[in-house]
């Protein structure tokens, strides 16, 4: 089984969070999974980790539509942070809007982090692929 140290799930919908966690634990060995209700609490935590020079998450699942700070606002702030390693960010959204896909592409071109766009519901095979990339 693959091993992933730290995973962040940023989503305000508890069912989605439950689903992602359930699949993740069945395809990989995850040491710690952190949940965040919106972008603001997630980015605050990441800032803190950067400041403390602590271990950053290897994988982030990011919802777009969230209160307080949405997924796009989170990405805007995130790519500005001084992080050397490439973090895998998986956008998981119920949107199938081309505009949102284009926006994800725009972010991709602006950063060295690995950004991927996934539509809900996320499938087991997709999460398997994602964990494969991360654990390599």
């Amino acid at each position: 089984m693959k091993k992933i140290n730290s995973i962040f799930i940023v989503d305000d919908d508890p069912i989605t969070v439950y689903g992602i966690k359930k699949i993740l634990t069945s395809v990989a060995q995850c040491n710690t999974i952190f949940e965040f209700k919106n972008g603001q609490v997630a980015i605050d935590q990441i800032r803190k980790l950067v400041l403390e020079n602590s271990e950053l998450p290897e994988l982030i699942f990011l919802d777009i539509n969230m209160p307080i700070m949405d997924g796009w606002e989170f990405l805007e702030d995130f790519i500005k942070l001084p992080i050397k390693e490439s973090i895998n960010i998986n956008i998981v959204t119920s949107s199938i809007d081309q505009y949102d896909k284009d926006r994800a592409e725009d972010f991709k071109s602006l950063t060295h982090h690995c950004i991927q766009f996934n539509s809900k519901p996320i499938k087991r095979s997709e999460i398997e692929e994602i964990t494969e990339i991360v654990s390599v």
Binding site: S94, S95, P121
Partner: peptide, 18 residues
């Protein structure tokens, strides 16, 4: 509307699959 309905239906699909 599409976003909201989709998010619900996505949950249904996922939960039913589980």
């Amino acid at each position: 509307v599409s976003h909201n309905l989709r998010s619900h239906s996505a949950n249904f699909a996922m939960l039913l699959d589980f």
